[in-house]
């Protein structure tokens, strides 16, 4: 039996269905990413799990570790669920300092005396490397530090489930990568079952054990990130995850290509293409190449620098 089970989850806002009878099973200790575009319903799933939204009446049960969180008339209020949630804007309470922000869940639930609370908070702050800044307020912290406070607050109660709502979206690229790795390490170390909501493909691909791709309130596909990236089972997943390119040949037949599957062939074999444009991406180049077989230019990537108007030969491997 799975650790978290979501059955037929539906949610409608003002007659607009946002979630349409969605099923999801999560194993204990698993790191699952919910990936989708805006309006795909990923944050709504998280809010239904947290108890911040009530699922529609016809929804099936949401069960966590054998406990029913919501089903029909059963609705466990958010404060009883023992979940950790990192909000997109971190939601650091401005009137409390860093220490008190993290201690808040322990204080409202009256977990132990003040010495025990202090010990627990310090342990968690050490885990996220913030033990030096305990007296600071939210506005005195950088974006990365605020993110770590939010994470510490979510971890302090040893939650049954950790929910992350686009926690890295407000950070710069370097910090995003650094904190992403830190989150992954921490959840593994603590054996936490985690659900990450994100619209960033690379974030979902790099952090999760399993990736769930959402499309307008339904699960489009799910699986291991490598599998989905290399062999996207549906057209939507190919476009969303692998930037698949739709190209028409001269007979107006439509074909879908994954840009990463094109490679340059030496020795005059394959399709001859002329480089139309080149963009430097850091570790590689992105090219658009004109050719005689297809009506639109082919998109491909290569670490090799090729000059504009130069002719190369490409091969496509399924």
């Amino acid at each position: 039996m799975s650790y978290l089970s979501i059955q037929r989850l539906s949610k409608t806002f003002d007659d607009t269905p946002v979630l349409k009878g969605l099923h999801l099973e999560v194993a204990k200790g698993e790191f699952v990413s919910l990936l989708g575009a805006s309006g795909s319903g990923k944050t709504t799933i998280l809010r239904c799990l947290a108890g911040l939204e009530r699922p529609d009446f016809e929804s099936g049960p949401i069960v966590l570790n054998g406990v029913e969180l919501s089903h029909k008339r059963v609705f466990m209020p958010p404060e009883k669920r023992n979940l950790g949630l990192v909000f997109q804007n971190y939601a650091i309470w401005p009137h409390l300092n860093l220490f008190e922000n993290v201690a808040f869940p322990l204080r409202v639930k009256k977990v132990g005396d003040s010495r025990k609370i202090e010990q627990r908070v310090n342990d968690v702050l050490e885990l996220v490397q913030l033990q030096e800044l305990t007296q600071r307020y939210g506005y005195q912290l950088s974006g990365g530090q605020q993110q770590r406070v939010a994470l510490a607050r979510a971890l302090v109660m040893s939650p049954d489930l950790l929910l992350l709502d686009e926690p890295l979206s407000n950070l710069d690229a370097i910090l995003r990568e650094e904190l992403g790795i830190q989150i992954r390490k921490l959840t593994k170390k603590l054996g936490l079952t985690t659900i990450l909501v994100t619209h960033d493909q690379s974030e979902a691909l790099s952090l999760s054990d399993r990736l769930v791709l959402l499309n307008y309130g339904e699960i489009e596909t799910q699986g291991r990130p490598e599998e989905l990236y290399r062999n996207p089972p549906t057209e939507f997943s190919a476009r969303f995850l692998s930037k698949a390119q739709e190209i028409f040949d001269l007979k107006r037949k439509r074909q879908l290509f994954l840009p990463r599957n094109w490679s340059i062939l030496e020795g005059g074999e394959g399709i001859a293409v002329t480089i139309a444009s080149r963009i430097f991406l850091g570790s590689e180049y992105q090219y658009l190449a004109e050719n005689s077989q297809y009506k639109s230019p082919i998109l491909f990537y290569s670490p090799r620098r090729i000059e504009q108007d130069e002719v190369v030969h490409l091969q496509y491997r399924e």
Binding site: G51, L52, P78, E79, L85, F104
Partner: peptide, 11 residues
């Protein structure tokens, strides 16, 4: 979210 965070964290 400041209020929602309160509920989620047990208040």
């Amino acid at each position: 979210t400041l209020f929602e965070a309160g509920r989620v964290f047990g208040a």
